[in-house]
């Protein structure tokens, strides 16, 4: 296993794998995301995000940037120009801020990934002006990053797994919430009882990170030692 990457760091290739996995999950869940959006929004979330992530993966296959900041600038700008609606600027801002915080490096350690994730979520909060409890992406992203930060000492793979679990718990917690941001807020109390589509796609983003980092670090995987 000597050819494997250092378990303490995440390389550009693994970050690209994260984006590819996110694109695949969004594509698989496209109709589910759109159906969730039909209940409390305007029935286009899965379609729009799928279109955007397909464009991202195509761009990265045509020309893969060498550094983390350049990679995520490409990702963010592609999403901003292809997704539209509110999710374009929100996901676009997440990746743009993530890349800026990471800087012109070709790998991130566990702490560097924490800093970038925190910056990305900060960008989403600033862009959408949403707080936890508003029934938005933030309800999945905020607990996810907090969980990552708590587990940062155990390395990026374990921290990402913890983040993914927290994101899914945060996603499920949006069901009883009354929406206070976005189009769903026009429904007021009628928005309660529905899973938030943005929190659902954000949980996929963290699931993709955990999946992309899992198995690439065999030294820490059960049964492989």
């Amino acid at each position: 296993m000597g050819s494997r990457a250092d378990p303490g760091t995440v390389e550009v290739a693994q970050l690209v794998a994260w984006l590819e996995t996110f694109g695949r999950l969004v594509h698989e869940e496209r109709d589910h995301l759109t159906a969730l959006d039909a209940a409390i929004g305007d029935a286009d979330h899965g379609l729009n995000l799928d279109r955007g992530m397909r464009a991202v993966v195509e761009r990265l296959h045509a020309d893969r940037p060498a550094t983390v900041d350049a990679l995520f600038k490409t990702v963010g700008m592609t999403l901003v120009s292809t997704v539209g609606g509110a999710s374009g600027p929100l996901y676009g801002t997440f990746f743009l801020r993530f890349g800026t915080a990471a800087g012109p490096v070709d790998e991130l350690d566990a702490a560097g990934l924490a800093t970038a994730l925190r910056a990305g979520v900060g960008g989403v909060v600033a862009r959408g002006k949403a707080e936890p409890g508003d029934k938005t992406m933030v309800d999945a992203l905020e607990p996810a990053v907090t969980a990552y930060e708590r587990a940062v000492g155990s390395g990026p793979e374990h921290a990402a797994a913890a983040a993914s679990e927290a994101a899914e718990a945060g996603r499920d917690a949006t069901i009883p919430m009354v929406a206070r941001k976005g189009r769903a807020s026009y429904l007021a109390e009628r928005s309660a009882g529905h899973l938030d589509p943005g929190a659902t796609s954000s949980a996929l983003l963290l699931r993709a990170l955990a999946d992309a980092l899992a198995g690439t670090l065999p030294e820490t995987t059960d049964g492989r030692a």
Partner: peptide
């Protein structure tokens, strides 16, 4: 004033 319009013009 729609969430998407405001965010896209802001960006």
């Amino acid at each position: 004033n729609y969430t998407g319009d405001v965010m896209n013009f802001d960006m």
